[in-house]
């Protein structure tokens, strides 16, 4: 991958003002997405995945949220300091987003057609008629039957899977360069889930849209992504190609995550779970954030902050002292 990345996030830091003071939800997160690439961001609830994506869109509720530091480069342009007008041009046009809850993510009082065409009219400066045609084309592209009828229907007349297809069609209607999918299949049942993932993969191939897939489901990662970023308590703890990560997980947290995936071929033993809970954001200020749940933790882990170390060449990094003998990421 020699071409310059579409989206590059560097040392992003987002914090929230709470009753107990300022809490850092996203801490020094960096990653890049190239054209047509699908990357996965994995982690438990509350690890900062969604805040990362909302920070990129600058949709973190503000106050109490705030991007404290770092850069977000969209085709080389730093959008952290961009004004609201520029952000409106970016949202839905250059970076689009789909959400976890298809049941509540569409406005219940507006027809699908109206919600679809709204963004098209704004970003692509199309007339109502042209926008309608584009919307119709997109609905057909995401495999919705009777697209013409759906244009005139309200969200409550569609099923969850159909609504998520509408969301995808809507998100892709202005040809965004990056699609951020925040747990797009979590609320759907398994068969619909695999249909939606298949659809996204296919659209990624045909439209060359880069996808940033946020999920807690390693199965989704295996099916969809080329590279994976594992987040824990607001930090990136490991980044690798998807094959590497599944074959050779380095960080004890990643290893724990992989061990907790049920295997239908295995013997029926009690499913592994990582002991303890995700620390409350802001509660750990020194040392490795995973230390208290880690079976390999030693004295140094609670004293010093580990940085990201490179493993197996450039493309596998891990935040753990066990891998310190390798080169530090600059």
């Amino acid at each position: 991958m020699t071409q310059s990345p579409v989206l590059e996030v560097r040392n992003l830091e987002t914090s929230f003002v709470t009753k107990d003071g300022e809490v850092t939800a996203v801490d020094q997160v960096s990653f890049t997405i190239h054209k047509g690439e699908v990357i996965g961001i994995v982690g438990e609830s509350g690890c900062g995945k969604s805040v990362t994506s909302l920070s990129i869109m600058k949709l973190v509720p503000q106050p109490p949220g705030k991007i404290v530091g770092g850069d977000i480069l969209l085709n080389g342009e730093n959008i952290v300091g961009a004004n609201e007008k520029r952000m409106r041009e970016i949202r839905g046009n250059e970076i689009a987003m789909i959400f976890q809850e298809p049941m509540t993510s569409l406005n219940p009082l507006f027809k699908i057609g109206e919600q679809m065409t709204e963004g098209i009219k704004i970003h692509m400066k199309k007339s109502k008629k042209e926008a309608n045609e584009i919307a119709l084309k997109m609905l057909k592209l995401v495999g919705l039957p009777r697209a013409e009828a759906i244009m005139k229907e309200y969200p409550h007349q569609l099923s969850g899977g159909m609504r998520q297809r509408v969301m995808i069609a809507m998100a892709l209607s202005c040809n965004p360069e990056v699609l951020i999918a925040d747990e797009p299949t979590t609320a759907l049942d398994v068969t619909i889930q695999s249909q939606i993932l298949g659809l996204m993969k296919e659209l990624n191939k045909t439209l060359q849209t880069s996808i940033m897939m946020i999920t807690h489901d390693l199965g989704v990662v295996a099916q969809m992504c080329e590279r994976v970023i594992v987040m824990y308590a607001g930090q990136v703890v490991e980044e690798a190609k998807v094959g590497d990560l599944f074959k050779n997980p380095k960080h004890p947290y990643t290893q724990g995550l992989l061990k907790s995936v049920p295997d239908i071929r295995g013997e029926h033993s009690r499913l592994y779970s990582i002991p303890g809970n995700v620390p409350k954001p802001g509660s750990i200020t020194k040392g490795c954030r995973f230390a208290e749940r880690c079976e390999f933790a030693h004295e140094r882990c609670v004293m010093e902050d580990p940085v990201l170390f490179m493993e197996d060449g450039e493309e596998h990094t891990v935040r753990c002292f066990l891998h310190e003998k390798r080169r530090e990421v600059s």
Binding site: R88, G92, F99, T104, H123, M167
Partner: peptide, 15 residues
């Protein structure tokens, strides 16, 4: 506070 308002904002509609 609802999800569809977040969707609307993510589309790039004027506040």
């Amino acid at each position: 506070k609802s999800d569809y308002i977040r969707t609307a904002r993510a589309k790039g509609i004027r506040m």
